[in-house]
């Protein structure tokens, strides 16, 4: 009976994993820090990515997902990292028309403490772009920032896609 239940559990896990991968593809960061599932129709952008930044464009004209790994982050925790970043975005030289849409809240990403926030700013076209961003501080002064970005109209849809990325997030080390 126990053996049967274990087998069923394993089958369910495999099924869930295959469903997740069925709607996207597994992406492993070049530095090997994490891996996650990138939803289907989201395309890696070579010209905007580098050793520390990976950028994916979504199927619409205004949505994109990007993940940056930063070094020399001296903030004590994810909340401090988030609050410092947002205050700089709000300051002169920051993001044009910056608005904090949702305050910083804390969450866990695959067992690691993180902080998230939603803000918006004005593009050159004067259109308002919304971003849901998750901040993480790792050991060795490393920081990870995961961002979904979209226009206000379709932002909620992109956030739903973002859940796929977050729920499948796994740290490699």
């Amino acid at each position: 009976m126990v053996r049967y239940r274990l087998g069923l559990a394993a089958a369910l896990i495999i099924l869930a994993a295959s469903q997740a991968l069925g709607n996207g593809f597994m992406f492993t960061e070049p530095g090997g820090y994490y891996q996650t599932v990138i939803p289907e129709q989201w395309v890696y952008q070579t010209h905007q990515s580098d050793n520390h930044l990976v950028v994916f464009y979504g199927p619409d004209e205004s949505n994109l997902l990007y993940i940056e790994r930063l070094q020399h982050i001296l903030d004590d925790n994810a909340r401090s990292f988030a609050e410092r970043t947002l205050s700089l975005y709000e300051a002169p030289g920051g993001l044009r028309g910056f608005q904090l849409e949702e305050p910083v809240t804390e969450l866990m990403i695959d067992g690691v403490a993180a902080a998230s926030s939603v803000y918006s700013y004005l593009l050159d076209s004067k259109a308002r772009q919304w971003e849901y961003r998750i901040f993480i501080v790792l050991e060795d002064e490393q920081g990870i920032v995961i961002t979904i970005s979209d226009s206000e109209d379709s932002f909620e849809d992109s956030c739903a896609v973002f859940q796929t990325v977050i729920s499948n997030w796994r740290w490699s080390q």
Binding site: H47, Q48, L53, N63, L64, L70, Q71, L74, R84
Partner: peptide, 15 residues
């Protein structure tokens, strides 16, 4: 140049 406490980039979609 090493910037301590860098600020994350904001990436915009190119047309």
């Amino acid at each position: 140049v090493v910037i301590h406490n860098p600020v994350p980039r904001v990436v915009e979609r190119k047309t």
